[in-house]
């Protein structure tokens, strides 16, 4: 498997009060093939979002390297389309203008007409053909997230990053949007990484599920391949004979095996993190 995205020895730490450092993520290694859909799953606050934001370039990397398509990433950029948990639309712009803002940046050589077509295409695909000229305040939460998805795809990014994109939606809307996402992703085959704590969502959407251990010093715990054939639909996936086994596996990881060490608690920073690290920091040359 030739890796398209390569994350090696990724580490994120913050200086902790008292002189030491609070390590959120450590020794995170992952390779993702071109066109693969990977989901990172873990308890809330374990550091999975931090890891994704480092990929996005919105959080600084303390140590380690991230390479996407042969290029090391430095800072944020429109080559990675991001769907945030809250849609993060600019409220003074219409749905069309929100998507256009990014399209203008990426396709600056295209004609105005071409750009308009790109924006309209993606908004139509996500089902907002009739609501392009509406402001976010006039759209439902689900519709806003549709705009968010359209905006990410319209950039034609090298990679798609999804930070609990359906976390704020009710379950019916969530199902609808998962289907919209899957349909778009199948068409474009963009390498994607999603962060979630919804086991069913992970199994439905991804090729592989990466389980993260609890923080502090969260890292890759187990990786699970999801063998369901594509194109998938929810019913066949859920009725697949392997489904209960995989689901059980993920849940039992989250319940029992996510505690990597005796230090692991649910808190990210706190006393546990500071104590042992500051001790070792004195011996390890920086």
């Amino acid at each position: 498997m030739s890796a398209y995205v390569e994350i090696s020895q990724l580490k994120k730490s913050y200086p902790a009060p008292g002189g030491g450092e609070a390590v959120i993520v450590k020794d995170f290694n992952l390779k993702i093939a071109n066109g693969e859909f990977v989901t990172v799953i873990g308890h809330s606050g374990c550091g999975k979002s931090t890891q994704l934001m480092m990929l996005a370039g919105l959080t600084e990397i303390t140590e380690g390297v991230i390479v996407i398509g042969g290029k090391e990433i430095t800072g944020a950029g429109p080559d990675r389309g991001i769907v945030f948990q809250s849609p993060s639309l600019l409220p003074w712009m219409t749905a069309f203008e929100n998507v256009m803002l990014g399209v203008e940046q990426v396709f600056f050589t295209a004609t105005k007409e071409e750009r308009r077509q790109i924006v309209e295409y993606y908004l139509t695909v996500v089902g907002l053909g009739d609501a392009m000229d509406k402001r976010p305040a006039e759209l439902s939460q689900g519709m806003r997230q549709r705009v968010g998805i359209a905006r990410a795809f319209a950039l034609k990014p090298k990679m798609l990053l999804l930070d609990e994109p359906f976390g704020m939606l009710d379950s019916l809307t969530r199902y609808e949007l998962q289907a919209v996402l899957l349909q778009l992703w199948r068409k474009e085959r963009i390498t994607a990484m999603m962060v979630t704590h919804d086991v069913d969502e992970a199994l439905y959407l991804s090729d592989r599920v990466v389980c993260m251990t609890n923080g502090p010093e969260a890292t890759v715990g187990e990786i699970l391949s999801v063998p369901f054939e594509r194109p998938r639909d929810r019913k066949t996936v859920m009725e697949h004979p392997d489904y209960p086994r995989l689901r059980h596996e993920l849940i039992s990881f989250l319940e029992h095996r996510s505690h990597r060490s005796s230090l692991g608690g649910y808190g990210v920073a706190g006393v546990h993190a500071v104590e042992p690290v500051s001790g070792s920091a004195a011996t390890v040359p920086a």
């Binding site: 370039g57 919105l58 800072g75 944020a76 950029g77 991001i82 945030f84 600019l90 803002l101 990014g102």
Partner: peptide, 12 residues
């Protein structure tokens, strides 16, 4: 921060 992130991601 959400709005600023949008600006950063799009490299405005």
């Amino acid at each position: 921060q959400d709005y600023l992130n949008v600006a950063r991601v799009l490299k405005l």
